[in-house]
Computed example of a mutant assay.
Amino acid sequence: MAAANMKDVKRRIRSVESTKQITKAMELVASSKLRRAKEKALAVQPFFETLYDIMSGISSDRDFKSVYTKKEPEKSTLIIVIAGDRGLAGGYNSNVLKTAEQRIRRLESDKEKISVMAIGKKSVEYFDKQSYELAGRYPNIAESLDIYEAMDIAQEITERFRCRDFTRVELVYTTFVSALTQQPVEISLLPVENLENGGVKSSSLTEYDPSPEEVFDGLVPQYLGGVLYAAVVDSYASEQAARRTAMESASDNADEMINQLSLLYNRARQAQITQEINEISAGSLRDE
């Protein structure tokens, strides 16, 4: 009986050790991907900060008007939801999808028509099962996304906004706060509003050809592409950080389980040895 129990415990220990090797490898991969994602985000930041400054300077003019700043009475909103492409990342996917669902319900309570653009495999899978109109599906693009692909998506969004397919565009994604903290956030993209002057002192000091409005309208798709790109990269970094934390926790739990099973195995082995000694002693006494 003891031998059979020892064999089961030994098999369980080998199984947990195999699982630990997988979780440890996934932790290392996530750490590497997290570092690269942070480098990508930092590399494009100066360019889009400059775009923001220019747009802020133009829009500070009281006479400025643009189709991208115009608010419409009709309520039709596009929600862009960015989630991960894989699981095993703790509560990363469930948290951002829950945030998006809560935002959608608030908009629906105001009688707004809702469309969803799903970015990330988990986002696509989730909203495919819902009753919302899907304006776009972009699974498995986060790791390989470049700025040109983000610009193409932004161009499609701005064209549909100009055609009034929807009168408002919002974005729900997860921002990287630290290696241990990732926070789902909601931001408004279109119409462009509440731009703060980020360093341009006065738009009157700069001449725009053919006009400030046309320059602004030309910059909006690029700016929107930059925001989307940064959000996808930020979300991807958050996903890797969440996965690294989850896999680190899983590896620690595996260590603890291995220690407990090893103790159980040693006790069973000790009991077997004691039983064998007792049997030998009893046999010796009978021989005498």
Score class of each variant (00 low, 15 high):
G225D: 10
P221Q: 05
G199E: 06
R164N: 04
I104Q: 12
S203H: 13
R14H: 06
K70P: 00
E17S: 13
L34Y: 05
E196K: 07
S144D: 13
P221R: 04
T99I: 02
I119W: 11
A150K: 02
G90T: 03
Y265K: 13
T19I: 05
V177P: 02
E207T: 15
E156V: 08
Y52C: 00
V227Y: 04
T245A: 15
M1Q: 09
G199S: 08
F161Q: 13
I114Y: 12
A254L: 09
D165L: 14
V169E: 12
V9T: 15
E39G: 01
E279I: 13
V185L: 03
G136K: 04
N278I: 05
K122W: 01
Y173W: 07
A30E: 05
N194S: 12
K98I: 01
E125P: 07
R164Q: 07
R11L: 11
P73D: 12
P212K: 08
L107R: 08
I13L: 04
G120M: 01
R35G: 01
I280W: 09
E214S: 14
T175I: 10
S56M: 06
K98Y: 07
T69Y: 02
L134A: 10
M247Y: 11
L285K: 12
S18Q: 08
M26K: 14
P191Q: 11
R103G: 00
K129G: 08
S204P: 01
Y148F: 14
M117P: 01
Y132F: 13
K40W: 00
A250S: 13
T158M: 05
S76N: 12
D217G: 06
D287A: 14
V200I: 15
V124F: 05
A2Q: 10
S31D: 09
I258G: 05
S131W: 04
M151N: 15
S109C: 01
G218E: 03
